[in-house]
Computed example of a mutant assay.
Amino acid sequence: MADTFSQRLRAFVIEMPISEVEVAEVIGFTRRTLSRRLKSEGTTFTKVLNEARFNVAKHLLVNTDMRLAEISDALEFSEPAAFTHAFRRWTGTTPSAWRKKHQQVEPLCCAERPDGARVRQRRRLPE
């Protein structure tokens, strides 16, 4: 099954969070052509960007112990409250509550790296 343009764009904005104009320039479109192409697939740049941010947020909440402020910064929200507001709009719940519900992991433990340093990591519980 071939990826749609919006799916490829979503992957692109996850890797390189930039504006619509910058994305259009990088892929060789005008902003208007990019908008038309997305409209033909029933979406917009804002929707694609929000879906990408949501997917990254879910991943970070489940697979890391990053604080909400760190996740907010990583996703380029203006402040943690803006991230919490967006996440509540996407899911109907707060990021903290969503993390607690979806994070089926053993408590943080320590592992040794080859250089002898100890790092905190999470291990998934078998489902």
Rank of each mutant, 00 (worst) to 15 (best):
K100N: 07
P126Y: 11
V21N: 09
E76R: 12
T44K: 06
N63V: 02
E25P: 10
R88W: 00
I14K: 11
P17W: 15
R10S: 14
E112V: 07
M1D: 12
E79S: 14
V26Q: 02
L38W: 08
R88T: 05
E51W: 03
E127S: 08
F29N: 06
D73Y: 02
H59L: 12
T64W: 07
K47V: 15
S72M: 13
A2N: 09
R67G: 11
V119S: 07
V105M: 06
Q103L: 09
E51F: 06
P114E: 08
P17K: 13
S72H: 06
T30S: 11
A82P: 00
A52Q: 01
F83V: 01
I18N: 11
R37K: 15
I27W: 14
F5P: 03
T44N: 01
V13Q: 04
E25W: 05
A2V: 14
S6V: 09
E22W: 03
F87L: 10
Q104M: 08
P95K: 13
E22D: 01
E76N: 11
L49Y: 11
K47C: 04
A52R: 11
T44E: 04
V21W: 15
Q7R: 02
A86I: 01
F12C: 02
T94D: 04
A11S: 10
F45C: 02
P126H: 00
R89D: 06
R99P: 09
H85Y: 05
A82L: 07
E79D: 14
T43I: 08
I27D: 04
E20G: 08
K101A: 15
K100G: 09
R123Y: 14
V119L: 09
R122Q: 02
R10I: 04
S6P: 06
R122T: 08
R32T: 10
